[in-house]
Design a protein around this nucleic acid. Structure first.
Lengths: 145, 145
DNA sequence: TATCATTGCATAGCAAACTATGTAATAATA
DNA sequence: TATTATTACATAGTTTGCTATGCAATGATA
């Protein structure tokens, strides 16, 4: 019984993800952000002043992961948290000027990386690849439940 | 400027990897192992008594990551490290009976997960998908250098 | 209204990845 | 041979993911 990594979807997916996140890490380091902050920033660039719960609904991470990420973002001067006007349990999350200012550069960096790593695939292949990933993601979400 | 996650290779890859590793974590928990130990176990099941350096050459992680993983595996009773007969800096890594005994179940679990998550893809689509991943991995390794 | 359940968020603890650096031991060389 | 370089591995520190749990505030209900 052999287990060939190059024919294991799980192995390839994991390997690809780790390589990609390290490329992103290097490229966005000059902006003063790290990969884990990216999804939260994307959401906040679209809509500012959300509560953690509202932000969480836009992302695919667990609540505790987001809470910790937000704490680091606040430490790094990307956001501030203000008390919620109507609910003392909640806080609203606001981009700082710093957090706002890196938006375009961050978008461009992420878009550029996607283009570069897919450069060897034709447009049809790229669409097929993205489609497969969406289907597999859907399947995993079925399977795990 | 919008950033659509479902059309971002980076986002999809990361999401898919996290979902997959959690499925693997749940399924192999009864065996007393965790996902990060899997690659090292696969290599040791093929060839036992390697040095860390030799094992490292068979894997795709950094040396420090492997050293820590091996420490946890030793703690968990999966391996023991013995002093190298000829080089006092090195240690040879040996599966325990426990580490050896879970081999078939672990293989089957991993194979099963791969089959399940790819179940919605035809054989041709699966081969295309694996091929795209191999090509993208190759491209990332070019890009990052 | 007093109690109980739920909600929003934070914290603790672990895994697993990374880079950077430390520490011996071994090998190479001046 | 004494010094220097290299090698093998370990450790420190950070990020980012997870689950489990705690705590205070809010909402529901007896």
């Amino acid at each position: 019984m052999k287990f060939d990594r190059m024919n294991s979807a799980g192995y390839l997916v994991n390997n690809m993800a780790r390589l990609l996140v390290e490329v992103l890490r290097k490229r966005i380091a000059p902006l003063g952000i790290v990969p884990g902050q990216f999804p939260a920033l994307l959401a906040l660039w679209e809509k500012d002043g959300l509560t953690q719960k509202e932000l969480l609904a836009m992302l695919d991470v667990e609540q505790a992961t987001l809470a910790n990420t937000l704490t680091r973002m606040e430490r790094d001067g990307l956001i501030i948290r203000k008390e919620h006007p109507a609910d003392a349990r909640a806080r609203t999350i606001h981009l700082t000027e710093e957090g706002h200012s890196i938006r375009d550069a961050a978008y461009q960096t992420a878009t550029r990386i996607n283009e570069e790593v897919l450069d060897d695939l034709s447009d049809e292949e790229t669409q097929a690849f993205l489609g497969y990933m969406r289907r597999v993601i859907g399947k995993i979400k079925e399977v795990e439940s």
